[in-house]
């Protein structure tokens, strides 16, 4: 069991209010990702749940039990840190065994659980090494191993992949997702990378300046962003925003069109522009286009056709997928 409930939580560091007021319900077994730009309060929120920081006001409930003032050691949560935070003076075995030792488990139980965790995470050959003799990915797995042996109510991940190189990051992403499917334990995962958020989460919390901008499944966020911030944050490349006269035509303060929602033509279309840069990825091509009277936008197209700098192109936004925003940044009903 591992449901987590935040009730009107706020947090200030001295004069600085980091989190004004957040309420969230995270269900047992859910994989929830906190995503947002740096400084949005996502790590602070995670640390509040962990008990490494205390709330200025509000309550935190784990499985319906008030844990607001419980120390981290008593909350029954496990955390994987960005720096992995492995104990450098202990072997991999002792690192993984540490939570069990703290829980005063018997030697047999410890051995058995460590062996099991090591097998699951492909660490069996490294049990007697020190962390410094491991690669980044292996260290990451040790940190995860240390988290899973204590069978926590929930796992907390604080940007765990940001120190890995790109290829390894994709692998570990998969491994963590698989782990979640296997364990079915609640996981809260903090990242600034919306790709990680989209690919891993059951539900995503988009945070900005300490506020929850939207809480929903990845596709909800993609299809029906609540506001301009979420619309711009979720999706890659970013949504294009156009305001002024073009937006007024749609009865909005601003309109947004995702790069993948343009029809491209070399002969005719709604908006005329010239290609500035064409980024060819093979499967796709991202075109950065100067639209006359509008500005720079990005459009995504198939990788087959080639475009040159200075070439004239026409863009037609998919009328079904034009997002409209009011002056306050909130999405307007379709």
């Amino acid at each position: 069991m591992g449901s987590i409930s935040l009730q009107n939580v706020n947090k200030s560091f001295g004069e600085v209010q980091v989190i004004p007021d957040i309420s969230l319900e995270i269900n047992d077994g859910e994989f929830v990702v906190f995503v947002g730009p740096s400084g949005c309060g996502k790590s602070t929120l995670l640390r509040l749940i962990a008990g490494l920081e205390d709330t200025t006001n509000g309550r935190i409930l784990l499985d319906g039990q008030d844990m607001t003032d419980a120390p981290p050691a008593r909350r029954g949560l496990a955390m994987v840190f960005q720096s992995y935070a492995l104990y450098p003076h202990m072997s991999v075995r002792d690192n993984i065994a540490f939570p069990l030792k703290m829980a005063k488990a018997s030697k047999e139980v410890i051995d058995q659980k460590v062996e099991y965790a090591a097998r699951t995470l492909n660490l069996s050959d490294y049990l007697d090494r020190r962390p410094r003799a491991l690669s980044g990915g292996q260290r990451q797995r040790v940190a995860i191993g240390r988290a899973i042996v204590r069978e926590p109510k929930a796992f907390l991940f604080d940007e765990p992949l940001s120190n890995l190189d790109a290829a390894l990051r994709v692998n570990m992403r998969l491994e963590i997702t698989e782990l979640h499917q296997q364990l079915q334990t609640t996981m809260i995962y903090v990242t600034h990378d919306q790709v990680e958020a989209m690919t891993m989460a059951d539900r995503i919390v988009v945070l900005n300046a300490g506020n929850v901008e939207q809480f929903g499944t990845p596709l909800e966020l993609y299809r029906t962003p609540a506001n301009r911030f979420v619309a711009g944050f979720i999706g890659s490349p970013k949504m294009n925003f156009v305001d002024g006269a073009e937006a007024a035509k749609h009865n909005a303060h601003a309109i947004g069109v995702r790069p993948e929602h343009f029809a491209l033509s070399k002969t005719s279309g709604t908006w005329k522009g010239t290609v500035s840069v064409a980024e060819q990825l093979g499967s796709d091509t991202f075109l950065h286009i100067h639209l006359d009277g509008i500005g720079l936008v990005t459009a995504r197209t198939g990788g087959e056709e080639t475009y040159e700098h200075g070439e004239t192109v026409y863009l037609t936004p998919d009328p079904q997928r034009i997002y409209r925003f009011g002056a306050d940044g909130n999405a307007l009903a379709a």
């Binding site: 962990a50 008990g51 490494l52 120390p71 981290p72 050691a73 949560l77 496990a78 955390m79 840190f81 960005q82 720096s83 935070a85 492995l86 104990y87 450098p88 540490f98 939570p99 030792k101 703290m102 829980a103 240390r146 204590r150 907390l156």
Partner: peptide, 21 residues
């Protein structure tokens, strides 16, 4: 790094164990 001490706290270590181990 304070992370490592926090990791110990998350791993269920009380203060005494955090310092000793």
């Amino acid at each position: 790094p304070v992370d490592i001490l926090e990791a110990a706290r998350m791993d269920g270590a009380e203060l005494w164990n955090e310092i000793v181990y």
